[in-house]
Amino acid sequence: MNTFRMYFAMALGTGAIVAAALGCSNSSAKPASDVAATSGAAVATDDSARAKEAKDAFWEAFRSMDLDAIAGARDKMIGLFNTRPKDPDLATIGGFAYVIPIQTMRYGGPPMDPSKIPAYFELAVKYTQAGVDAAPDQQSKIFATAFAGGVLYSGAMVRQDWAAAQKGREMEQLVTTHMPALGYATVTDLMNGAPRNTPDFTTSLDSLFRLYELCSGAKFDRAHPDMRPLLKRPFANPSRDCGNHYNWPHSIQGYLLNFADILVKNNQPDAARPVYEFISKTEGYDTWNPKFKHIVEERLASDLTKRAAEYGPGDPQKQPLIGGGCFACHGK
């Protein structure tokens, strides 16, 4: 695998983590950077204002699917963290923002200069780990660990560094222990690119079942899941990773698309079809970007048994993608 394709593979495993992990803070559901600010560190007023401005700019860019604006907000966040590292979320979110254009390219977005991709991943590793190291309390440390563990795992799998991959798994297990909804959502995204019939892919599928069971309070048949318990409100679990939010307005739809695709990859096309059909019944579907509605329609019009066969042995870069990428959950 050449360097360009190697980092492409890494992006496939890590890109969608942001759809879950950015939802773990306990701040209010209003449109503000407070969603990401979990540390509570004492920051000077001017620093706090600049940090808030940079994070607000990131969220607006992310919701607007504007890669140039995402890059601008990322550079502001990283610059503020490097100058006065009192807000670890600047490093965590800013670091992960390096992955977004790579993952977006994987899903048909604008191309990147291949020579920049290794450096972008190195920066993602550096700053997400800096967010862990700078976190002043357990909650913000777990938040940052979801990102850092994901980046570490994906890079290690590409390099075939099994010790580092195991460390990444352990970091994600720590997240699942302390923030189960966040952990399950992160792990299912992180590992769904693993080859079918491997322990990591099995963990990806099981984690999404566990997430839905945690959120709904219902048990799901692994062979023929009935998704209707997800329509009941309130959710059995108060975690915001269970539903849509201002900054991830279509998380429900995006994750159900992922789930159906993962079932197909698991050679369960008959179980997947009702999940694709269910997406149109969920809250928020009417305002979901037509691009992603079209993906669901294409799946339903296709031969899912044939699609399942495409996940057999062979080059994973030639296999169908899972879901619609970051913007399927975060895009307006």
Rank of each mutant, 00 (worst) to 15 (best):
D133K: 05
P136H: 00
M179L: 14
T145P: 05
Y184D: 12
V175E: 00
Q160G: 04
Q160C: 04
Q160M: 11
A134P: 09
Q129N: 06
L152A: 04
I142Q: 02
D137V: 06
A146R: 08
M171F: 03
A135F: 02
M171S: 06
V187T: 14
A163L: 13
K167N: 10
Q129P: 00
A181Q: 07
A181V: 08
A165G: 09
I142M: 04
M157T: 13
R159K: 15
Q166P: 01
G168N: 01
G131D: 03
R159C: 02
K141N: 06
Y153F: 15
F143M: 12
A181M: 07
K167H: 10
L182I: 05
W162I: 11
A185D: 10
M171N: 05
A134Q: 08
A144K: 09
Q129C: 00
A185L: 10
F147S: 09
A148D: 10
A130V: 03
Y153K: 01
S154I: 01
A148S: 15
H178Q: 13
A146D: 08
A144F: 08
M157C: 12
F147H: 12
A164W: 06
G131M: 01
F143L: 13
T186M: 05
A181W: 05
P136N: 00
Y153H: 10
W162R: 14
A163R: 13
A135N: 01
E170D: 14
M157D: 11
Q160V: 11
A163C: 05
Q166R: 13
S154C: 11
T188W: 13
A135V: 01
A163K: 14
A130L: 11
Q166M: 11
K141D: 04
E172G: 00
K141C: 04
G131L: 01
M179D: 12
F147T: 04
M171L: 09
M157W: 06
L152H: 02
G150T: 10
Q129V: 01
A156R: 07
A156W: 08
E172S: 02
A185V: 12
E172D: 02
Q173A: 11
A148T: 05
D189E: 10
Q138I: 09
I142S: 03
A134T: 06
W162F: 15
G149I: 01
A163E: 15
I142R: 05
M171Q: 12
R159F: 07
P136E: 00
V158T: 13
D189Y: 07
A146Q: 08
T186G: 14
D137C: 08
G131H: 03
D189W: 04
D161V: 03
M157V: 13
F147I: 04
A185N: 09
A146E: 07
V187F: 06
H178R: 10
F147Y: 15
G149E: 00
D189L: 04
T177K: 13
T177V: 07
P136G: 00
A165R: 10
Q166S: 11
E170F: 09
G183E: 10
T186C: 10
G149S: 03
K167R: 14
M171D: 06
A164R: 07
D133G: 00
T188F: 15
T188Y: 14
A185Q: 10
A164L: 11
E170V: 04
W162H: 14
A156F: 07
V158G: 02
Q139W: 12
